[in-house]
């Protein structure tokens, strides 16, 4: 798996999970709040700030390459859809035909639509990057400490932990069992959809469930003999405190957040329409 915590010694790794979570929260709030295309300008400021933090966290690009790849195809989809369908689109760039739908000619790909597609993509990107920074710089130990600080019950974080570890094991058992049944000439790949849905999974799920029951029993023995539940509040190995750097970072996040909001309601609309006019002018001349 790519999208996973990587041990490093950077400022971002040392920050309190709450600090990093508030960056994610800020990004999410802004993305939900901004609905007009001119908001791309204040959003880009947040994005730039996040990219600086990304650098600080030392996250290698290849680790998230898969996520980015998937995102790119989503963005492309949004840009194409918005390019043709955006209702405020008045400056056609090219046309593949002319189909009137109410007032809008959806055969035309417009400049405004293109920009609106980009705006939506930036919205998603701002949130995803904040999430990547959070996940890749926060160890599970710290997350469970966070759960403890938030007064979630211990059994909750234990279940989460065990689930995280056993999910891949269950998938592996599933595919091993599937292979094992194929070896008995049980050609699941050759069955049609209906047979597959009703019959094919009995020989796979039966052993899987029995296997999980055995595992569960053994896990119970293993954790109970290690005193699971002996105290209500097991010792937290990693105690997490808010440090001066956390407050400093929170202030920076707040500054960027309010700066972005301020821009959005003051300069952004006129700046954006100026930029749009400039583009339209260039298109008209070119």
């Amino acid at each position: 798996m790519t999208f996973k915590y990587v041990e490093k010694d950077t400022l971002m790794h040392k920050l309190h999970p709450i600090t990093k979570a508030s960056l994610l929260l800020a990004a999410l709030l802004l993305a939900l709040l901004y609905t007009y295309d001119y908001s791309v300008i204040p959003l880009l400021i947040v994005l730039a700030f996040e990219l600086v933090l990304w650098r600080v966290a030392g996250i290698e690009f290849w680790r998230v390459a898969l996520v980015i790849k998937v995102l790119m195809s989503i963005f492309l989809f949004f840009i194409i859809v918005q390019g043709f369908l955006y209702r405020g689109g008045v400056t056609p760039l090219f046309a593949i035909g002319h189909f009137k739908l109410w007032e809008k000619d959806i055969g035309e790909f417009t400049l405004e639509g293109l920009l609106y597609g980009i705006f939506i993509s930036v919205k998603i990107l701002t949130v995803v990057i904040a999430a990547i920074i959070f996940v890749m710089t926060t160890s599970i130990t710290k997350m469970s400490a966070l759960a403890h600080n938030l007064r979630l019950p211990y059994s909750f974080s234990f279940t989460l932990l065990a689930g995280l570890r056993f999910a891949p094991l269950i998938f592996k058992s599933f595919s091993d069992i599937k292979d094992a049944q194929k070896l008995r000439a049980f050609d699941i790949d050759r069955m049609n959809m209906i047979v597959r849905a009703f019959k094919a999974y009995v020989p796979i799920l039966t052993p899987l469930i029995l296997n999980l029951l055995r595992r569960g029993m053994e896990l119970q023995i293993s954790i109970e003999s290690r005193g699971y539940g002996a105290t209500k509040n097991p010792t937290q190995l990693e105690e997490i405190f808010m440090r001066p750097k956390d407050y400093l970072m929170l202030i920076m996040i707040a500054v960027v957040f309010f700066l972005s909001l301020y821009l959005n309601y003051t300069l952004a609309p006129s700046l954006y329409s100026g930029f749009l006019d400039h583009l339209r002018g260039m298109l008209a001349r070119g």
Binding site: I140, R165, F166, R214, E218, S222, I223, Y228, T235
Partner: peptide, 30 residues
């Protein structure tokens, strides 16, 4: 007690957390 199959006894994301699980359940100091 230690059982046969290590895979059904280990559940933590790191070696440290796995080993610390027991003693922290006992509420020992850090």
């Amino acid at each position: 007690i230690v059982l046969q199959d290590p895979d059904s006894q280990i559940f933590s994301p790191t070696v440290l957390m796995e080993v610390a699980f027991g003693p922290s359940n006992l509420g020992l100091s850090k």
